[in-house]
């Protein structure tokens, strides 16, 4: 595999020596292998038959690949106290409903913050930028009090509602919307369109990369089990929690737990691959300007 340097893209006047790109190649190769190592090992472990899992020393490859771990994962989940489909249902609905609501709520707020001049606008946006620091785990305990006081503790709503105001989502969308041409919005206003009409007829179609990016980030966090700390009822919890119980039970189930890991990582991967172009386009505007 050779790396092609796309000169016309980088357009640099500085010429890199052949030795330099060999070093870069090695750095990237070694780091990429390090990043991929756990994924590779997860897949290998998940395909190992029982005697290979217990083989000593542990092998870095699989000799007789089998799907038996995936089958035993199914059996384990069937023997759980709560039917497995319940966790799947919880995770899928949490991710789907949460993602749609987060996109609507953050884009709805991002548009006026980007394009209208109203008192309080700067204060709101500055507060949101500062709050980028206060991600989920950092505010979890004080937020727990609010959730308990609102009666959301141990309800389905606790899986979604605390995530609804996504500072990162609003931030990315607002910066992206700022790039839109003002004359487009002005001429729609002259044609008599209200702000809300402009929002869903013009702004949303033109900012697809931004909300797809927010979608990806939201799917990652919700699918990854956000909000489960506010729940104690087993039947309300989501998939990552259920699968972590399987993985918590030691060596005998290490094949099944690797299989669980592989199954869980597939959905976010697919979404990311499908939308990578949009993500990079959006991130081009993800700067804090002052």
């Amino acid at each position: 595999m050779r790396i092609r340097l796309s000169k016309e893209k980088s357009g640099s006047g500085v010429i890199r020596s052949g030795g330099g790109s060999a070093v870069v190649f090695i750095i990237l190769l070694v780091s990429a292998l390090f990043m991929l190592l756990p994924f590779y090992y997860a897949i290998v472990q998940s395909l190992k038959p029982m005697q290979e899992i217990f083989a000593f020393p542990p092998k870095f490859y699989v000799r007789n690949p089998t799907l038996s771990n995936y089958k035993s994962l199914m059996q384990l989940t069937n023997s759980m106290w709560i039917p497995f489909w319940r966790y799947v249902f919880n995770s899928v609905s949490q991710t789907a409903i949460g993602t749609v609501l987060i996109i609507i709520i953050s884009s709805l707020a991002a548009f006026p913050l980007a394009k209208c001049d109203f008192p309080g606008r700067n204060l709101i946006f500055k507060t949101v930028v500062t709050s980028l620091l206060f991600v989920g785990p950092i505010t979890a305990v004080p937020a727990f009090i609010v959730i308990a006081k609102l009666g959301l503790y141990n309800t389905y709503l606790a899986l979604i509602v605390p995530s609804l105001a996504s500072s990162l989502g609003l931030f990315l969308m607002k910066n992206f919307m700022e790039q839109l041409n003002d004359s487009l919005i002005e001429s729609a206003k002259i044609d008599g369109a209200g702000l809300v009409t402009i929002y869903y007829r013009i702004v949303m179609p033109l900012t697809k990369p931004a909300w797809i990016t927010v979608m990806i980030l939201t799917i990652q966090s919700l699918w990854g089990g956000a909000g489960n700390g506010y729940i104690y009822d087993e039947q309300l919890k989501s998939l990552p929690v259920a699968l972590s119980q399987i993985t918590a039970s030691g060596m005998a189930r290490s094949g099944a737990s690797a299989a669980a890991g592989v199954v869980l990582m597939i959905p976010p991967f697919i979404f990311f691959v499908l939308s990578q172009r949009n993500v990079v386009q959006t991130m081009a505007n993800a700067g804090i300007k002052e």
Binding site: M35, G224, P240, F272
Partner: peptide, 12 residues
């Protein structure tokens, strides 16, 4: 970017 997406793969 893959590790960031695979929240629960720490187990590996």
């Amino acid at each position: 970017y893959a590790p960031t997406m695979s929240g629960s793969l720490y187990v590996i």
